[in-house]
Design a protein around this nucleic acid. Sequence first.
DNA 1: TACTCTATTGAGAATCATTCTAAGTTTAGG
DNA 2: CCTAAACTTAGAATGATTCTCAATAGAGTA
Lengths: 146, 146
Amino acid sequence: MRPEERAQRLLQELERHGYRTTPQREAVCQALAYHGGHPSAAEIVEAVRPQGIGQATVYNTITALEKLGVIQAMPLNTDEHTRYDLDTTPHVNVVCSTCGAILDCHAPQLDLLLAQLASQVGTSFESANVVVYGRCQQCQRTQLVA
Amino acid sequence: MRPEERAQRLLQELERHGYRTTPQREAVCQALAYHGGHPSAAEIVEAVRPQGIGQATVYNTITALEKLGVIQAMPLNTDEHTRYDLDTTPHVNVVCSTCGAILDCHAPQLDLLLAQLASQVGTSFESANVVVYGRCQQCQRTQLVA
DNA sequence: TACTCTATTGAGAATCATTCTAAGTTTAGG
DNA sequence: CCTAAACTTAGAATGATTCTCAATAGAGTA
């Protein structure tokens, strides 16, 4: 999905739930969509600051989106701030413990695992946050050279 | 593993890596081991406060254990503080989004998934943090009654 | 035992992401 | 236009975690 489409979808979802569309919310949604990776609140605050948008608004908007389930909080061990995932379907986030890069991996076995788990434990499944820490190929090479 | 054994193992691991064994570290390790669930730093601080142990020491010890890989940080969306897992083998943490209860689930498919992932992506695998949010059976029943 | 050097402890201050407050601004709908 | 409710935001407050640094304890040595 292209960034512009994605931004639209975020806004639409807000509107659909009774939130007004404002220039500030548009800017926040665009910043989220155009980030490309896994944005943190601080990064979005930074991105929309030139447009005179306050941090409270950024946090409010992000919190609203999270409550609606359109984005997903993703607290990490390697980072001091919470990052957000625009992809809320179950997938594995492979995090390089050296450079911090995050790679989204969709593995069919994960859905299977979750389905089995839900029936076994009897929980009604809501969301999943799967994080695997390792060293990415590039950082492995760098390590060898150093 | 019995709590007392577990506490011993934590201490031994510290010692094995050059950390001295002190009464304070013993107390922190015991508090971790006897907690039974997924302790937070604040809970351990509280638990050892009667013995006159400061929070800096608790945080230092926990950080040391985490660096050695004997315990694992487990940041959650539902909780304001980081919790720790004494079980560092890959497993699924099923978290009830209503009552906050955490259930450890060992699923053989997870190990399979991780192995395949490692070979696919080419990362050297270090640790995994798998969290599934849902509503536990008990909270589902309560919901019906209310 | 006395000495020295290093690791450890811990009270209190500092940090920093996030949340709250309260006052001003915008908007929808009549 | 009005008005009430939603929205924005600067700045203050919160609260977990980290840092500082002076005091203490322990291991090795003579």
